[in-house]
Amino acid sequence: MLNKNSLILLVLAVALILIGLVMPYWFSFLVTVALGKGLVVLGLVILMRAGLVSFGQGLYYCAGAYAVGAFSHFVETDNVILLLAVAMLAGLVISSVVGLLLSRYRDIFFAMFSMAFSMILYGVLVKSAELGSSDGFNVTSPSLFGFAPEVNGGSILSYWVAIILAFVFGAIIWRYFKSPMGVAGEAIRENEIRVEYLGVSVQKVIYIKYIMAAVLASTGGAITAMTVGHIDPEMAYWTTSGEFVFIALMAGTGHVAAPLLGAVIFELLRSFAFQVSPYTWQMILGITLLAIIIFLPKGLWSLKDKLMKGAKS
């Protein structure tokens, strides 16, 4: 049985899927790419709720994208389900190894060390001739067993996939954040010693969260690869990871919808700002970041709570 909230969400998801049919292609493209990033940021939010900031989610974003690219290229398939599964598997496998090391670190060490790992992947890819070196390579557009409808001049399949994944993962993580495992993150952020004395291994909890974040990031990378149709090592560069951190901070970690919506807002802003003044985009980002840290440390989402409190009183 569905309760009221899930029903609303389901209707919203179906509506968004249908709206895709009348949307201009540039817009559905933008939303798809944004949701891909949104999933990465959602994973980052899992870590940030546990007090860990990763400056290396680009590692999994890029790994997911390259998994899609390499698999579609070498196995010659464009099956969207298969490609997504391969990308998630790539994130899972890499993070379960890297996570063993990273779950021992906190604070700036976690931030810097995760960045180093993503730079290792960057360094490898830049020099891999068979994967296109620093130019990367093109990825074929996906289909669902040959089904890939064109709407307004572009394939709409990726958009649909992104919407569905955003809702599915959003719902799962929403539930997760209210579960003992989810709340354990906040507990660890607040006091690790107490968590250990409550009988739980802090390192294990962080390890699991790290893997979850990685799978979300590689899924996001897969969506991006399938939508944009091109991948390059830049996806693992630390500035890409920095962008994810920016979106997470701007949006806030208070709700699963925050990173997803935040990513869409971010992409919209960027596409406008880029047209208006390409050389001040980073400056705008920087000023926004500082303003958020100073005036709105819990991100844009916290405005909603403030407004609702204001309305009540």
């Binding site: 900031v53 400056f55 700036i108 931030a111 920095g242 951190v245 920016f246 901070l249 050389y279 001040t280 985009w281 980073q282 400056m283 980002l285 920087g286 000023i287 970041l289 500082l290 840290i293």
Partner: peptide, 13 residues
């Protein structure tokens, strides 16, 4: 770190 990251973005432009 995030603060100095913001400063970096501003300085780059």
């Amino acid at each position: 770190i995030l603060v100095t990251y913001g400063i970096l973005l501003i300085l780059e432009d």
